[in-house]
Protein backbone atom coordinates (compact mmCIF):
# COMPACT_ATOMS: atom_id res chain seq x y z
CA UNK A 1 0.00 0.00 0.00
CA UNK A 2 1.21 3.45 -0.86
CA UNK A 3 2.37 5.56 2.07
CA UNK A 4 2.22 9.33 2.06
CA UNK A 5 4.51 10.62 4.78
CA UNK A 6 3.57 14.04 6.16
CA UNK A 7 6.31 15.73 8.14
CA UNK A 8 4.61 18.17 10.49
CA UNK A 9 5.55 21.21 12.49
CA UNK A 10 4.21 22.00 15.91
CA UNK A 11 4.76 24.89 18.27
CA UNK A 12 3.64 24.97 21.89
CA UNK A 13 1.87 21.65 21.44
CA UNK A 14 -0.17 22.87 18.49
CA UNK A 15 -0.06 21.87 14.85
CA UNK A 16 1.13 24.84 12.73
CA UNK A 17 -1.47 26.12 10.22
CA UNK A 18 0.69 25.23 7.20
CA UNK A 19 1.01 21.68 8.52
CA UNK A 20 -2.77 21.32 8.68
CA UNK A 21 -2.75 21.85 4.92
CA UNK A 22 0.10 19.37 4.50
CA UNK A 23 -2.03 16.74 6.22
CA UNK A 24 -5.01 17.69 4.05
CA UNK A 25 -2.95 17.34 0.89
CA UNK A 26 -1.53 14.03 2.13
CA UNK A 27 -5.09 12.79 2.69
CA UNK A 28 -6.06 13.75 -0.87
CA UNK A 29 -3.05 11.93 -2.32
CA UNK A 30 -3.60 8.86 -0.14
CA UNK A 31 -7.28 8.65 -1.12
CA UNK A 32 -6.46 8.95 -4.82
CA UNK A 33 -3.73 6.30 -4.57
CA UNK A 34 -5.46 3.92 -2.15
CA UNK A 35 -2.79 4.66 0.37
CA UNK A 36 -2.43 5.73 3.95
CA UNK A 37 -1.19 8.87 5.64
CA UNK A 38 1.61 8.54 8.13
CA UNK A 39 2.22 11.74 10.07
CA UNK A 40 5.61 12.36 11.62
CA UNK A 41 6.21 14.92 14.35
CA UNK A 42 9.80 15.43 15.40
CA UNK A 43 9.03 17.56 18.41
CA UNK A 44 6.78 16.74 21.27
CA UNK A 45 3.41 17.77 19.93
CA UNK A 46 1.71 17.38 23.28
CA UNK A 47 -2.03 17.56 22.89
CA UNK A 48 -1.75 17.78 19.12
CA UNK A 49 -0.79 14.12 18.57
CA UNK A 50 -4.18 12.68 19.29
CA UNK A 51 -6.00 15.28 17.18
CA UNK A 52 -4.01 14.59 14.01
CA UNK A 53 -6.42 11.87 12.97
CA UNK A 54 -9.07 14.54 12.62
CA UNK A 55 -6.82 16.39 10.16
CA UNK A 56 -6.32 13.32 7.99
CA UNK A 57 -3.62 11.12 9.52
CA UNK A 58 -4.06 7.34 9.74
CA UNK A 59 -1.02 6.86 11.90
CA UNK A 60 1.06 9.31 13.93
CA UNK A 61 4.72 8.76 14.71
CA UNK A 62 6.21 10.91 17.44
CA UNK A 63 9.99 11.16 17.42
CA UNK A 64 10.43 13.87 19.96
CA UNK A 65 13.90 15.05 20.68
CA UNK A 66 14.27 17.69 23.34
CA UNK A 67 15.08 20.43 20.84
CA UNK A 68 14.48 20.72 17.13
CA UNK A 69 17.54 19.63 15.18
CA UNK A 70 17.40 20.27 11.42
CA UNK A 71 19.84 17.51 10.51
CA UNK A 72 18.35 15.22 13.14
CA UNK A 73 14.79 15.78 11.90
CA UNK A 74 15.85 15.18 8.31
CA UNK A 75 17.60 11.93 9.25
CA UNK A 76 14.54 10.77 11.19
CA UNK A 77 12.27 11.62 8.26
CA UNK A 78 14.53 9.80 5.81
CA UNK A 79 14.64 6.73 8.04
CA UNK A 80 10.87 6.66 8.44
CA UNK A 81 10.41 7.19 4.70
CA UNK A 82 12.53 4.09 4.08
CA UNK A 83 10.86 2.03 6.80
CA UNK A 84 7.37 2.84 5.52
CA UNK A 85 8.41 2.64 1.83
CA UNK A 86 6.90 6.09 1.42
CA UNK A 87 5.98 7.11 -2.09
CA UNK A 88 5.72 10.80 -1.22
CA UNK A 89 7.19 12.90 1.59
CA UNK A 90 5.25 16.12 2.10
CA UNK A 91 6.16 19.10 4.21
CA UNK A 92 5.22 22.77 4.49
CA UNK A 93 7.23 25.35 2.56
CA UNK A 94 7.96 27.19 5.81
CA UNK A 95 11.41 28.26 6.97
CA UNK A 96 11.81 24.93 8.76
CA UNK A 97 10.30 22.94 5.92
CA UNK A 98 12.49 24.58 3.28
CA UNK A 99 15.46 23.78 5.49
CA UNK A 100 14.58 20.08 5.54
CA UNK A 101 13.47 19.28 1.98
CA UNK A 102 16.92 19.28 0.34
CA UNK A 103 18.43 17.32 3.21
CA UNK A 104 15.75 14.62 3.06
CA UNK A 105 16.11 14.39 -0.71
CA UNK A 106 19.89 14.08 -0.37
CA UNK A 107 19.56 11.31 2.22
CA UNK A 108 17.05 9.42 0.06
CA UNK A 109 19.02 10.05 -3.15
CA UNK A 110 15.98 11.56 -4.81
CA UNK A 111 14.73 14.93 -6.04
CA UNK A 112 12.37 17.43 -4.50
CA UNK A 113 9.81 19.97 -5.63
CA UNK A 114 9.83 23.14 -3.57
CA UNK A 115 6.98 25.50 -2.68
CA UNK A 116 4.30 23.72 -4.73
CA UNK A 117 0.89 25.27 -5.31
CA UNK A 118 -0.79 22.15 -6.73
CA UNK A 119 -0.26 18.47 -7.43
CA UNK A 120 -1.98 16.01 -9.70
CA UNK A 121 -2.78 13.04 -7.43
CA UNK A 122 -2.57 10.48 -10.25
CA UNK A 123 0.55 11.52 -12.14
CA UNK A 124 2.30 13.20 -9.17
CA UNK A 125 3.14 16.16 -11.37
CA UNK A 126 3.83 19.15 -9.12
CA UNK A 127 3.05 22.75 -10.02
CA UNK A 128 5.41 25.39 -8.72
CA UNK A 129 5.93 29.08 -9.45
CA UNK A 130 9.51 29.87 -10.51
CA UNK A 131 11.45 33.05 -11.32
CA UNK A 132 9.54 34.86 -8.58
CA UNK A 133 6.21 33.93 -10.15
CA UNK A 134 7.23 35.12 -13.62
CA UNK A 135 6.76 31.53 -14.84
CA UNK A 136 5.16 28.34 -13.61
CA UNK A 137 6.85 24.95 -13.85
CA UNK A 138 5.28 21.52 -13.79
CA UNK A 139 7.75 18.96 -12.58
CA UNK A 140 7.99 15.27 -11.84
CA UNK A 141 10.45 13.84 -9.34
CA UNK A 142 12.49 11.09 -10.98
CA UNK A 143 13.89 9.38 -7.86
CA UNK A 144 12.37 6.62 -5.73
CA UNK A 145 10.43 9.00 -3.47
CA UNK A 146 8.92 12.38 -4.31
CA UNK A 147 9.81 14.97 -1.68
CA UNK A 148 7.70 18.11 -1.95
CA UNK A 149 7.03 21.22 0.10
CA UNK A 150 3.69 22.98 -0.16
CA UNK A 151 2.95 26.70 -0.26
CA UNK A 152 0.42 27.81 2.34
CA UNK A 153 -3.21 28.61 1.53
CA UNK A 154 -3.29 26.35 -1.54
CA UNK A 155 -4.38 23.01 -0.12
CA UNK A 156 -7.62 22.32 1.74
CA UNK A 157 -7.56 21.46 5.42
CA UNK A 158 -9.43 18.24 6.21
CA UNK A 159 -11.68 18.03 9.26
CA UNK A 160 -13.11 14.62 10.04
CA UNK A 161 -14.11 12.42 12.93
CA UNK A 162 -11.23 10.00 13.22
CA UNK A 163 -8.63 8.88 15.67
CA UNK A 164 -5.11 8.06 14.60
CA UNK A 165 -2.93 5.50 16.24
CA UNK A 166 -0.03 7.27 17.99
CA UNK A 167 3.37 5.59 18.27
CA UNK A 168 6.58 6.81 19.89
CA UNK A 169 9.71 6.24 17.83
CA UNK A 170 13.36 7.08 18.38
CA UNK A 171 14.61 10.38 16.94
CA UNK A 172 17.92 10.49 15.05
CA UNK A 173 20.58 12.70 16.64
CA UNK A 174 21.75 15.86 14.89
CA UNK A 175 24.68 18.25 15.14
CA UNK A 176 22.71 21.50 14.93
CA UNK A 177 19.96 22.50 17.36
CA UNK A 178 17.39 25.18 17.89
CA UNK A 179 18.20 26.45 21.36
CA UNK A 180 15.49 29.08 21.77
CA UNK A 181 12.22 29.92 20.07
CA UNK A 182 10.88 33.35 20.86
CA UNK A 183 7.32 33.74 19.68
CA UNK A 184 6.36 37.23 18.55
CA UNK A 185 4.31 39.06 21.13
CA UNK A 186 1.86 40.27 18.53
CA UNK A 187 -1.67 38.91 18.63
CA UNK A 188 -1.74 39.04 14.82
CA UNK A 189 -0.80 36.08 12.66
CA UNK A 190 2.46 36.10 10.72
CA UNK A 191 2.11 37.56 7.24
CA UNK A 192 3.44 34.36 5.65
CA UNK A 193 0.70 32.26 7.25
CA UNK A 194 -2.33 34.51 7.30
CA UNK A 195 -5.40 33.91 5.15
CA UNK A 196 -5.87 37.69 4.91
CA UNK A 197 -3.25 40.38 4.64
CA UNK A 198 -3.25 44.16 4.51
CA UNK A 199 0.07 45.61 3.39
CA UNK A 200 1.29 49.18 3.29
CA UNK A 201 3.80 50.84 0.99
CA UNK A 202 5.57 54.16 0.71
CA UNK A 203 2.23 55.73 -0.16
CA UNK A 204 1.24 55.37 3.49
CA UNK A 205 3.37 58.44 4.12
CA UNK A 206 5.08 57.33 7.31
CA UNK A 207 5.06 54.83 10.18
CA UNK A 208 2.73 57.11 12.16
CA UNK A 209 -0.06 56.23 9.72
CA UNK A 210 0.08 52.49 10.31
CA UNK A 211 -2.81 52.76 12.78
CA UNK A 212 -5.00 53.05 9.69
CA UNK A 213 -3.97 49.55 8.61
CA UNK A 214 -4.05 48.18 12.16
CA UNK A 215 -7.63 49.30 12.60
CA UNK A 216 -8.63 47.35 9.49
CA UNK A 217 -6.63 44.29 10.60
CA UNK A 218 -8.47 44.47 13.94
CA UNK A 219 -11.82 44.40 12.16
CA UNK A 220 -11.08 41.36 9.99
CA UNK A 221 -10.49 37.94 11.59
CA UNK A 222 -7.00 36.50 11.06
CA UNK A 223 -5.68 39.48 9.14
CA UNK A 224 -1.92 40.07 9.18
CA UNK A 225 0.09 43.19 8.41
CA UNK A 226 2.54 43.29 5.52
CA UNK A 227 4.86 45.88 4.01
CA UNK A 228 6.75 46.71 0.85
CA UNK A 229 10.52 46.78 0.85
CA UNK A 230 10.58 50.56 0.49
CA UNK A 231 8.84 50.76 3.84
CA UNK A 232 11.10 48.20 5.50
CA UNK A 233 14.26 49.82 4.14
CA UNK A 234 13.05 53.16 5.48
CA UNK A 235 12.79 51.56 8.92
CA UNK A 236 9.03 52.10 9.16
CA UNK A 237 8.29 48.40 9.62
CA UNK A 238 10.30 45.27 10.58
CA UNK A 239 11.73 43.00 7.88
CA UNK A 240 9.57 40.16 9.20
CA UNK A 241 6.61 41.94 7.55
CA UNK A 242 8.24 42.41 4.14
CA UNK A 243 6.47 40.77 1.24
CA UNK A 244 8.31 40.10 -2.01
CA UNK A 245 11.37 38.69 -3.66
CA UNK A 246 13.63 39.45 -0.70
CA UNK A 247 10.86 39.15 1.87
CA UNK A 248 8.16 36.59 2.41
CA UNK A 249 6.13 34.80 -0.19
CA UNK A 250 2.49 35.05 0.77
CA UNK A 251 -0.54 33.54 -0.83
CA UNK A 252 -3.59 34.60 1.17
CA UNK A 253 -7.22 34.54 0.12
CA UNK A 254 -7.26 38.33 0.37
CA UNK A 255 -4.33 40.70 -0.10
CA UNK A 256 -4.94 44.42 0.28
CA UNK A 257 -2.13 46.62 -1.04
CA UNK A 258 -2.35 50.20 0.23
CA UNK A 259 0.02 52.77 -1.25
CA UNK A 260 2.09 50.07 -2.95
CA UNK A 261 3.10 50.63 -6.58
CA UNK A 262 3.33 46.94 -7.52
CA UNK A 263 7.00 46.60 -8.49
CA UNK A 264 7.89 43.25 -10.00
CA UNK A 265 9.81 42.22 -6.86
CA UNK A 266 6.80 42.96 -4.70
CA UNK A 267 4.51 41.02 -7.03
CA UNK A 268 6.90 38.05 -6.77
CA UNK A 269 5.86 37.70 -3.14
CA UNK A 270 2.10 38.01 -3.48
CA UNK A 271 0.87 37.39 -7.01
CA UNK A 272 -0.50 33.96 -6.19
CA UNK A 273 -2.96 35.54 -3.72
CA UNK A 274 -6.55 34.65 -4.55
CA UNK A 275 -8.07 38.14 -4.38
CA UNK A 276 -5.95 41.28 -4.60
CA UNK A 277 -7.28 44.72 -3.66
CA UNK A 278 -5.28 47.80 -4.61
CA UNK A 279 -5.71 51.23 -3.10
CA UNK A 280 -3.55 53.80 -4.84
CA UNK A 281 -4.00 57.40 -5.86
CA UNK A 282 -2.22 56.84 -9.17
CA UNK A 283 -4.56 55.14 -11.66
CA UNK A 284 -1.50 54.12 -13.70
CA UNK A 285 0.17 52.23 -10.82
CA UNK A 286 1.17 48.74 -12.03
CA UNK A 287 -0.55 47.11 -9.04
CA UNK A 288 -3.93 47.80 -10.67
CA UNK A 289 -3.02 45.40 -13.49
CA UNK A 290 -2.88 42.58 -10.97
CA UNK A 291 -5.75 43.65 -8.74
CA UNK A 292 -9.10 41.94 -8.58
CA UNK A 293 -10.60 45.14 -7.21
CA UNK A 294 -9.12 48.60 -7.18
CA UNK A 295 -9.93 51.93 -5.62
CA UNK A 296 -8.23 55.00 -7.02
CA UNK A 297 -7.78 57.32 -4.10
CA UNK A 298 -5.77 58.63 -1.20
CA UNK A 299 -5.08 56.07 1.53
CA UNK A 300 -5.74 58.75 4.14
CA UNK A 301 -9.35 58.96 2.97
CA UNK A 302 -10.04 55.44 1.77
CA UNK A 303 -8.59 53.48 4.71
CA UNK A 304 -10.61 55.18 7.48
CA UNK A 305 -13.78 54.69 5.42
CA UNK A 306 -12.85 51.05 4.83
CA UNK A 307 -12.21 50.51 8.54
CA UNK A 308 -15.56 52.00 9.41
CA UNK A 309 -17.41 49.92 6.84
CA UNK A 310 -15.71 46.70 8.00
CA UNK A 311 -16.43 47.46 11.65
CA UNK A 312 -20.09 47.89 10.73
CA UNK A 313 -20.09 44.40 9.20
CA UNK A 314 -19.02 42.93 12.55
CA UNK A 315 -16.82 40.20 11.05
CA UNK A 316 -15.04 39.19 14.26
Amino acid sequence: MSTILALLETRDGKLRPASQEVLGAARTLADARSGRVVALVTESAGDADASLGGFGADEVLVASGERHSPDGAAATAARVARETSAEVVLLAATVRGRDLQGRIAALLDTGFASDCTAVDPESLVWTRPVYGGRAVAKVRVVGPVAVASLRGNHFPVVRREAEAEVKEIAPEPGQAHVVTVEAKQSARPDVAEAARVIAGGRGMGGPENWHLLERIADAVPGMALGASRAVVDAGWRPHSEQVGQTGKTVSPELYVAAGISGAIQHLAGMNSSKVIVAINRDPEAPIFQHATYGIVGDVNEVLPALAEELEKQDLQ
Binding site: T94, Q175, V179, V181, A192
Partner: peptide, 13 residues
Amino acid sequence: REVEGASETLEAP
Protein backbone atom coordinates in the same frame (compact mmCIF):
# COMPACT_ATOMS: atom_id res chain seq x y z
CA ARG B 1 16.64 33.19 11.98
CA GLU B 2 13.12 34.50 11.57
CA VAL B 3 10.51 31.76 11.25
CA GLU B 4 6.76 32.25 10.89
CA GLY B 5 5.70 34.25 13.94
CA ALA B 6 8.87 33.62 15.91
CA SER B 7 12.60 34.09 16.07
CA GLU B 8 14.82 31.03 16.56
CA THR B 9 18.37 30.79 17.85
CA LEU B 10 20.38 27.84 16.56
CA GLU B 11 23.74 26.37 17.52
CA ALA B 12 26.12 24.03 15.77
CA PRO B 13 29.73 22.94 16.13
